[in-house]
């Protein structure tokens, strides 16, 4: 029982991180119609940007969080406006290839500036609390609480603001959004702001939970894609549920499978979903 609870806690923590990544991926996929392969590297970038104020100014990590998120938003928008925007008129698959290139560019930039080794936000050990045989680290609470706050903010943005509604409208039907008079490029920029910001938060939480490494984001791209597909492309709320399912499934699988194969579980769930219900649990878009 204690083991099950422990895995559940790990699963919720991992799932929160996957959800944050999957929200942006799902929004971008729904609005721009291509799977953004550089999303994992936006996650990495967010984690490393947050390291900057910590290591240079000695700023507290809580404040650096905002810097990391903001800087990643800027990069996401810049990549879109400089590169993806020029390729929007051609086939979406060209955007896909371009995003694979961006993934490698971002990763090599991280390696150039921060080196290929591991990095940590703080040197100290995060002492876990023990509650009836279950370990909970303070960071775990921070991560889950942070994810919940971000999801609530996202919800308010999507439901209450004109831009958020327009984003959902574009995800529903981009052509109709265009003829309705919605300023498409403005909505796209906002999509990258939200997607980039959420990705950065995922990276920062991942770095807090484990460590910083130049391929940290690429390694979780598969579960993040799986979460987005499970939830239905273009359905940010579905992405949250998808992230939690993938996170929990990966942790529970370690009871019978060797832990390195966790991504295989995400892969299997994703492929099953694609074969039997490609629109996802929450009926996202297929086209």
């Amino acid at each position: 029982m204690a083991e099950f609870l422990q895995l559940t806690i790990y699963g919720i923590v991992a799932g929160s991180i996957f959800s944050l990544g999957a929200i942006g991926l799902s929004l971008v996929y729904g609005i721009l119609r291509f799977p953004h392969f550089a999303h994992g590297d936006l996650i990495t970038l967010g984690a490393y940007f947050t390291l900057l104020p910590v290591s240079i100014l000695g700023a507290p990590p809580e404040l650096s969080f905002f810097f990391g998120v903001a800087a990643t938003m800027v990069v996401a928008v810049a990549v879109d406006q400089i590169l993806y925007r020029r390729l929007r008129k051609v086939a979406p698959v060209i955007l896909l290839i371009a995003s694979v290139g961006v993934a490698l560019i971002l990763r090599s930039l991280v390696q150039l500036f921060w080196g290929a080794g591991n990095q940590y936000y703080s040197q100290g050990i995060d002492m876990p609390w023990r509650l009836s045989g279950v370990n909970v680290k303070p960071d775990h609470l921070l991560i889950v609480a942070g994810a919940v706050i971000l999801v609530v903010l996202l919800h308010l943005f999507l439901q209450k603001t004109k831009t958020g509604k327009a984003m959902r409208a574009m995800s529903d039907n981009a052509d109709l959004a265009q003829v309705t008079g919605i300023e498409v490029n403005k909505v796209i920029i906002w999509t990258w702001v939200i997607g980039g910001g959420m990705a950065a938060a995922a990276g920062i939480f991942l770095g807090l939970d484990t460590r910083l490494h130049p391929v940290m984001g690429w390694r979780i791209l598969l579960p993040v894609f799986a979460a987005a597909i499970l939830g239905g492309i273009g359905r940010p709320y579905g992405a949250i549920v998808g992230g939690l399912i993938i996170g929990l499934a990966q942790e529970y699988s370690t009871v019978i499978l060797s832990p390195p194969y966790k991504p295989a579980v995400a892969f299997a769930l994703m492929v099953i979903m694609l074969i039997f219900k490609p629109t996802g649990l929450f009926a996202g878009r297929k086209a």
Partner: peptide, 23 residues
């Protein structure tokens, strides 16, 4: 008003109307 597929299906009716006033 385009042919068929001319509403945003996941938006509420009121949100659909608001989108008309986007500008």
């Amino acid at each position: 008003v385009p042919q068929e597929k001319n509403v945003f299906p996941t938006l509420t009716v009121e949100e659909n109307l608001e989108m008309g006033a986007f500008i």
